[in-house]
Nucleic acid binder design. Structure first.
Lengths: 352, 352
DNA sequence: TGGACTCGTGGAATCGATTACATCGATGCC
DNA sequence: GGCATCGATGTAATCGATTCCACGAGTCCA
């Protein structure tokens, strides 16, 4: 592959001049410029990004470590991240952690070794020493979706509290009183926050959340299946299962179907994270939708701000409830049911 | 960040010795080795992959350009590719083309600039000059899923012919005679092959495939919706719609539902590419399943063979029909219906 | 005892870019 | 006309690794 030297030779100038032409440096004669351009495309020359990065100490690359590529939520997040990054002149390398901390570490290490300019992470766990060290050492970093408390890193995420409250209101109105949740790993913020939001919302209605109604999942379909089976085996099974992500909802659906039961007649189902397929499942699934694309874009902007010396800000965007039929037919058709004691949560955008 | 020089200084040896220790070169004294190791972890040193790549002209990185990250099929492919690559000591950079040739070119260029060791592509179109040049110039390359005829690049893909024949047999047995297809872009092999396989299978039953029953889609949901609406507007709509990928099937489902019609009562539906959600859609969708994971792994093995100087081989694996309820109830419950004139297609693995 | 060999090590070139600095000719101004 | 300035260009150092080559010390065998 042709190098800058070959171009210089072909154009009859020095490598410095070639570099200047390529980087749009003003002090180059029109003549030299055209000769260089000519040489560039007769040789099909493309600058070697590796060499350039070594010299400039910039890769114009962002690392994105997500928890699970097979989860449509993260896939959509990844897409919007790449899109926004591209618009800002960066490319993105994705690392898929498959919800495994050691794999997450592998990717963080790999990305750091490649000297990416900044790191976008949705942590699978409470944070390995590796990641915490990197943050402390000053690697530009932004948490997206999930975060790690106590680390000085901006966070871009959705707040589901109001939407969970709306969901519980919806369920209560439909007459459901025994509500269970398939939680995510407690080590993740989304794992614990969603349970807490759910518990708090239930409390508003004087409803308990017994331990037997909290199933421990890991955000993967198989755990949703397993936990749901546990619920169904209970002497007094719940009337509703709320899955903390869409894959566990898929697993729950599998388990219910395997028993020959029907949603919502035998048991109702709701999920955190909305995906296009939920419109067409049997029945369509009531879900809490995150503004995924906006989250991805905001995260990239924050990270690039940090990289380019501006001050990044944390962003929290509201999630919202999308009512479908998996919890039973609404008496009054409505898309956004008003909660009992307060008005519908307003769209909010907080920064910290 | 500490460099090899810092390690050398801390250990009281030269950079050459540090490099030798790091690369497991035999000719290093035990004493030097321990001193270097010590310096490495007190400094938290990690080799700079950028510098290393520049010197060795190897990045140990594979590029993967897929047509659409939002498509679960490609997402699963990407996952298996990354997994196998990791096992073989490579990492993967994914480029998402979103079915847009110019975006595909952007990623190919980007990956080439980064001097990846090899390229895995599922081409969005007939091949841009850029990609063809790269192939001719000797960049290690393997096509996966889709390919470009006339280019000397190994191909790893699934053969759906037998499965399509099984599907048509199934449909015929259910009494369907007017069968339509939502095709993918003709510029892609999967776009045209699936239509041809369908046409050939119909011919075996003396069934025509009129032009009005061939809708032109682009593998995205929206096109599936649009084409299906067109079918439904026909004076004599088809009894079955076969979508050439899962996203167009999703769009078809949207269109049918928007008209207030029911699958399979009003119109039957089948899709190429099986995904977990098809089990839970209303109704569960009959689909042709590809051995996606195996495809990804085989593609990586072929590419790495090529990179490491062995001879790569093309691989073709069979797809298979998975019958569910979206085409009507089978008279006799069966998972793999026998085609009328010949026995069920045996599992085959051809190499070229 | 001395030459051949091995082993461990360091010096320095190298990969392909960027960029500070030096150089040189032309121009402008007093 | 002479000196400062400016624009265009080249030379060479540099980024952080790898690796060829040379060298000194020790070992072995004739």
């Amino acid at each position: 592959m042709a190098s800058i030297k070959d171009v210089a030779a072909a154009a009859g100038v020095s490598v410095a001049t070639v570099s200047r032409v390529l980087n749009g440096h003003p002090s180059v004669s029109a003549d030299a410029r055209t000769r260089v351009m000519g040489a560039v495309d007769t040789l099909g020359y493309r600058p070697n990004a590796v060499a350039r990065s070594l010299r400039t100490d910039q890769t114009h690359t962002l690392g994105l470590v997500i928890s699970d590529v097979l989860n449509p939520y993260f896939t959509e997040l990844a897409r919007s991240v790449e899109e926004e990054a591209r618009a800002l002149g960066y490319s993105v390398i994705i690392g898929n952690a498959d919800e495994r901390p050691e794999l997450q570490d592998h990717h963080v290490r790999n990305l750091l070794d490649r000297r990416i300019d900044g790191l976008l992470v949705s942590p699978t766990d409470g944070g390995s020493p590796l990641m915490l060290d990197a943050a402390r050492a000053g690697t530009p970093m932004v948490f997206v979706d999930r975060w790690i408390p106590g680390v000085a890193v901006p966070v871009v995420r959705a707040d589901g509290q109001a939407a969970v409250r709306d969901l519980v209101a919806h369920l209560h109105r439909l007459g459901h009183r025994r509500l269970a949740i398939i939680a995510g790993p407690a080590a993740t913020t989304t794992g614990s926050e969603r349970v807490e939001a759910f518990r708090a919302a239930l409390a508003e209605y004087g409803l308990p959340l017994p331990d037997t109604y909290i199933g421990q999942g890991d955000f993967q379909a198989e755990s949703g299946r397993r936990v749901t089976e546990g619920f169904l085996d209970l002497p007094r099974p719940p009337e509703v299962v709320f899955a903390a992500d869409n894959l566990m909802a898929l697993g729950a659906l599998d388990a219910v179907r395997a028993r020959g039961l029907r949603v919502p007649d035998d048991i109702a189902l709701a999920a955190f994270d909305d995906i296009p397929w939920f419109v067409h499942t049997d029945p369509p699934v009531t879900a809490i939708a995150q503004p995924t694309g906006e989250l991805g874009r905001a995260a990239v902007r924050a990270l690039v701000d940090r990289i380019e010396g501006r001050t990044p800000r944390s962003v929290t965007l509201p999630a919202r409830l999308v009512v479908r039929r998996s919890c039973g037919e609404a008496h009054v058709p409505s898309q956004t049911p008003a909660p009992p004691t307060q008005s519908p949560s307003p769209v909010q955008r907080s920064t910290s």
